[in-house]
Each structure stands twice: as C-alpha cells, then as structure tokens.
Amino acid sequence: MSREAVARQGAGRGGGTLRVGICGPVGAGKTSLIAGLCGALGTELSLAVLMNDPDVQAEEPLLTHQGLDARRIAAVRTGCSPQAAIRDDIRANAAAAETLESLFAPLDLLLVEAGGADLGANFSRALIDRQIFVLDAAAGDRTVRKGGPGVTQADLLLVNKTDLAAAARADLERMRRDAAARRGESPTVFVSLAEHPGAPAVADWVRKLMAQRRLTATGQERR
C-alpha cells in the first residue's frame, strides 16, 4: 500500500473478524462483561479474547468457566502504559489479534480488553471495529459528566453495578441525563452484571453488529 493510501485510510478496518474493544477503569467490570458475553455468545459464535493484563493467569478461570477454551485467550503486556497499547502504539495488540484470528479462522468475534485506564482512554480504530466503555456506578455519578474520549466516543457505554449505586449515593438519573448530553444518539446501557451476568442487552448489541456485518459482506460479494 502506498504512503498516501495508508495516510488516507485512518478510518479503521474492513471486514473479517468483528473486533470489539472493552475499556474502562480498573474494577468497573470489563472482565465480568467479557465472561458474560462468552457465556451468552459462546455457543452461537466462534470467539476469542485478547487481554491487556499483566496477570492473565488470574483472570483466565473467569472465562474458561464460561466454556471458553483457554487457548482462545491471549495476553499482551503493556509496560505500565495501557492506553499506549490500545491507541498510540497498537503493534503488540494488532499482532496478537492477527495470531488469534489465524489460529481460529474463521473467527467471528474478538473481544479486546484494555488494561484499566482513565476516562480519556479509547481504542485506535485501526485495532478494533467497535468499542464499549465500562463505568462503575458505585464509583460516583460525576464520571459521565466528566466525559473524555473514552466516555464520549465509545460505541456503547455500559454503566455497571447499578445495584450498588444507591449505597454509593450515585444518582443514576443524573448519569442517564449526562450520557444523553455527552453521547447524543450513541447507546448507554445500565446494568448490574452481578445480577444479570449474561448482560443480555450487550449480547444483543453484538448480535446486531454481527448481522449487519454479514449483510455488508454478502452485499459486497454480490457486487
């Protein structure tokens, strides 16, 4: 590809495996969401998980417990800079993603979990197709208002631990209003992954993306 073509591209990836990035602060529920999606989608889709985690062995059982083959989990170390690894310099993640995709081809869905990061964290569009930002409602209701690229640009904002919001005196309505103001038409989902581990709303959102993708793919083939 020429230098000009690469420079023009910038907008993201084409077809193949649907890659969904999952970002958010430590403890917000990123791994729980992935475990839920593995449980909900594992039987209908061929999926794999790429974790930006220095201690993936501790996390693995959460996913294998949902029926995911441990070989379908890969890890990337980020050198204490989780945001750089998903945004500024995605080489290691891109290489690991390609390895998983070729090992388990055809792979329908690749979930890429970022290392715990702040509200400014988002994925490079060269690494993923869609991204979910996970927030902890119990961490306070000002997080959505603060915004930041993670919150405003995510294709789906997931506010988790709604069951703990009252105890933490977090106003979910306020968060809902802030999300609407900050995110416009982009969806925001409120959930307690502890109470609904399968995260049906998110699983449906992924199913819809998969369906769109298949449609586009067949459309392109016909042409």
């Binding site: 990337v76 170390r77 980020t78 050198g79 800079s81 750089a84 690894a85 500024d88 310099d89 995605i90 080489r91 290691a92």
Partner: peptide, 10 residues
C-alpha cells in the same frame, strides 16, 4: 513515539 512496540519493553 514511533509506534514500533517499544513502549512495552524495559
């Protein structure tokens, strides 16, 4: 800052 993967190496 050249994205050559070096940031994760010490």
């Amino acid at each position: 800052r050249l994205p050559g993967g070096t940031h994760a190496h010490s």
